[in-house]
Design a protein around this nucleic acid. Sequence first.
RNA 1: GGUCGGGUGGCCGAGUGGCUAGGCUGAGCUCUGCAAAAGCUCCUACAGCGGUUCGAAUCCGCUCUCGACCUCCA
Length: 504
Amino acid sequence: MSSLSFYNSLTRKKEEFKSITPNRVGMYVCGPTVSGESHLGHARPFITFDIVYRYLLHLGYQVRYVRNITDAGHFEEEGRESEDKISSKAILEKLEPMELVQKYTNKFHWAMKEFNNLEPSIEPTATGHIVEQIDMIEKIIADGFAYVINGSVYFDVDKYHREFSAKGMPYGILSGRVLEDQLETTRDLESQEEKRNKSDFALWKNAAPEHIMRWNSPWGIGFPGWHIECSAMSTKYLGQEFDIHGGGMDLQFPHHECEIAQSAVCNHHIPAKYWLHNNMITINGRKMGKSYNNVIKLSELFSGNHEILTQAYSPMTVRFFILQTHYRSTLDFGNESLQASEKGLRRIWDAFQLLSKFNIESQQSSDSIDTSLNKHCLDVLNSLDDDMNDDLNTAKVLASLFELVPIINSLKDGHVKFDALAKDTLKLMKDKFKVYLVDIFGLQDEQKQHDDKISAILHLIAEIRKDARDKKDFITSDKIRNQLLAAGIQLKDEKSGGVSWEFI
RNA sequence: GGUCGGGUGGCCGAGUGGCUAGGCUGAGCUCUGCAAAAGCUCCUACAGCGGUUCGAAUCCGCUCUCGACCUCCA
C-alpha cells in the first residue's frame, strides 16, 4: 500500500508525508475574516482541509487542527485611505465592532455545521492574541528586522532577504517571486513615504482617531498588521515548526510569504513543513471574490435566493461538488454542474444505503463466485487508498465508488447474485463505502427527517394504493402516486412487490 | 510588464507514454398496467502546428487562448 503524499507548495512537488512527531500532526489553516458573510469561494478551503483533517484522523494520527478567526480588521490597499474594514462597516451598520464580528462568526459557524465540517481543535481569535502579536513584533524589532515610524511598525523585507537568503530562506521562497523583480515592477503608490521600501509590510499600524478597534502598544495606539496574527497564533499553539499549513492559493503571496519571514526571524524556522493550497472557485471563468462583484453567499446558495441560481443547493450537494474536483484545480460554478452533483450524490448515497442494509452474514460461501467480477470489485476497492494517498484525489475515489454502484444496484435487483461475490469482497465494499463517504468525506443524509406518525400514514397510503393496483384500479393508484409526488414524496414500485418512497 | 497555472466529448471533470475514468445531459432497449427507480447499449474527446518515440491527451518547441497572483482576497 502506498503512503500519503501531498503536493507541497514550498518545494513545488509531491512529497511523502512524514509527521515531525510520530503519530501526531499539527495543522494550521487560515480561517475567515469575519467582517462579512462567507461565500461559496470560502467554503472550499474549509471543506478541503476538513477532508485533510478527517483523513489524518482516519490514518490514526492525533491531530491538533488550529483554524483562526480574523476579527481584527485588516487594511485596505496601501496608498489608499488606510481604513479598518471591520470598523468602517460597523459604523455603516451602526453596530459595535465586536457585535459585528460576533454576528459573522456565528454565521460562519452555522455554515461550517451545515457542511458537516468537524470543529477545529483550537479556534483562536486575533483580538484574543494581541499580547502575543506585540511580543512577536518586539522580537522582530530587537533583531533588527523591523523599524518604527510614526507609531507604526514595518518589516524590513530588503534586509531580511539579504540576510536570510544565505540561510536558505529568501523572501519569495514560497511564492517563487524574486524580490528584485518585485521592486522594479511594483507600481508607485502614494502615502508610502513611511516605508523604507515598497515591499515592506506592516506589523503594527498606528490607529487614526476614527478607528474603533484599537489597542495600546509600545508604539502607541494601533492595531496589528495583517500577517502577524497567524505567525503568533501558530507558534503559540503548534510550536516553532509544525507539519501542515493550509489556505487558499490567493494567500500564498503575500500572506504566507510574510508569515514565513516573520517566523524565520523569531523562530529561525520556516514555520511549516508542508504548505497546502487549494485552488479558487470561479464563476464564468473568473475567481469568485468581492472585488469582482460575483459572489454567491452560502446562505443564498442554500436558499436559492440569488439571481444567478436556478434553484437551491443543499450543503451536501455543495460539499460533493467540491469533492468531485481535485483541490488544486480551479472549479467553475454553474447551475448545471451543481445539479449534476445533486443527482450524483443521490445516486451514490442511495447505493450506499442499500449496501448497508445487505445482510452479508446470511450469504453462504459458495463456489459460484464470478471471479472476474469479484476481481474487478477488489481492484477498484483496493485502488481507493492509493488515490486518496496521492495528494487527496477525492475525484478519483468518487469515480471508483461510482463504478461499483451498478453492481450494488444489480445485487438488489437480482441481476447479480450475492454469491457471485466473495463474502470478504462484500464486507470490504460495505466497509469502504462507509469509511470514505461518511468518515473521510463527511457526507451525511439530508433526507428530511420525518417522524413515526408520518411513516405510519405513508405505510397506510401505500397499502391502499397497493390494494387499488391489485384490483387494476389504476385511476386510484395513479392519483395517489401523482398527488404524493406533487407534495414532494416519490413512490417507487419495487420488483419484489414492495413500495419505497423518497422525499424530494 | 513580471511570476505561475490551465485549455479534455453537449456540460462538469479525473488522468503524465500503450489499457473503458467518472458524474450529469441526450438517444435506444429491458423490466413495468403505466411511471419512477434500476440494468444494458450508444454518442469515444483531449486548443492548433511541428518534433521526440514502435506508440503522445500525457514528453519537447512554437502559436493561439483563458485565468490566478504581483502587498484587500479562501
